[in-house]
Amino acid sequence: MSDSPNRMTSYWKKNLRTLLVLLSVWFIVSFGFGIILVEPLNQYHLGGYPLGFWFAQQGSIYTFIILIFVYVARMNKLDREFDVHED
């Protein structure tokens, strides 16, 4: 009964929740730390980097990569759990 409507709704809801969490992080590191909060964060330092500047030119990009790989792992697991995976 892999494609019963209820199960699919619950798969879709879990997918949306994953997206919500990951996109919140995406927003916070770039628009949050890199733009809105950049001045206060620049009071702190990471090595020779002011912290806000680091987020804007380095940290946000590293976080983006991690986000995609977390998403891949999470969705592969979810696909199997709901038996909607390929092969």
Partner: peptide
């Protein structure tokens, strides 16, 4: 471009990489 705009050049760095998160997830 970043050399002469300093911190403001971050818009290109974040803008042209952050889009891939949207692409991958959405």
């Amino acid at each position: 471009l970043i050399s002469f705009s300093g911190y403001d050049g971050s818009v290109y760095l974040m803008g042209w990489t952050g889009g891939y998160v949207l692409l991958a997830l959405l």
